[in-house]
Amino acid sequence: MAAPRPAERPRPTLLLLAAAALTLLTLHIRGAAPLDAFQQGLRDILEPLRSVTDTATDPIQTAWNGIFGYEDLRAENERLAVELARLRGRSVTDAADRELLERLLGEVGIDYTQTDTVVVRILGTPPGNFGTHRIEVDAGTDDGLSEGLAVVTGAGLVGRLEQVDRSRSTVILATHPKFLVGVRLVDSQDEGLARGTGRGTLKIEAGIRLDADIGWNEAVVTSGGRSLLPPDIPVGHVIDTDEHAEYERSVVIDLNADLESLSFLNVVLAHPEGDPLDVESGPTEGPRP
């Protein structure tokens, strides 16, 4: 049992602390810059320690993963073996698919490969157990990165930078249910607003005409315009056209990029022209979309 305590008044203290926390929370969500700076400063102070710990604990981590991650590793190995077999089977059609994609992208003047990017390495998940669908990368403001920049692989969109410190950043993945992106269907040229579903796909929730002629497997790219992300980044392909919708179509997109086995990513340096306060900063978004 704990030691006896002097007379305490936890209720007024608790109310005072709750009021202080709610005030801070409200200010932060409304975008108070000093609070962001405080948090970023604290993470920057910890950064050298984290780097040293990363290096020092590498052997321990390897042994740790060997003990606790063996089953995951074996499952991953089996998954990759199946994937390899599938890819070998598809090697002939891949060339044709690639040609088709290039032709489709070429038709709308896409020069996705010409954008300036910074290569970043994935460090893992951000500290703590709070939040999902986020990863941490090893570059930050010192490398010219800023919040909102698109994160891609050779296959297409992965997410965008959500939190940028001096030498680390957090990426919110495109599958996050709070991730919103303006997209365009390459064939039908319809544009809409896609949202992550939390399950490896995106769903276009608004903007698609009921009578739009959408093909299964149709390529989808970012729309640009007033969107926060640059235009013409490949997003994925249509896997559900929802053609029998009576009120609003919900087209489902399968992401091109495989989010399960990433090691390195590219951050697209170019911010799009136009108003950054666009459709992607939906009304229920947090401090920064």
Binding site: A18, A21, L27, L35, Q39, P126, G128, F130, G131
Partner: peptide, 18 residues
């Protein structure tokens, strides 16, 4: 905790005391 996990400042500070 809010600062290192990147949560809005005050979220865990609201939860932990009660």
């Amino acid at each position: 905790h809010d600062s290192i996990v990147g949560a809005p400042l005050g979220l865990h500070a609201l939860v932990y005391p009660p």
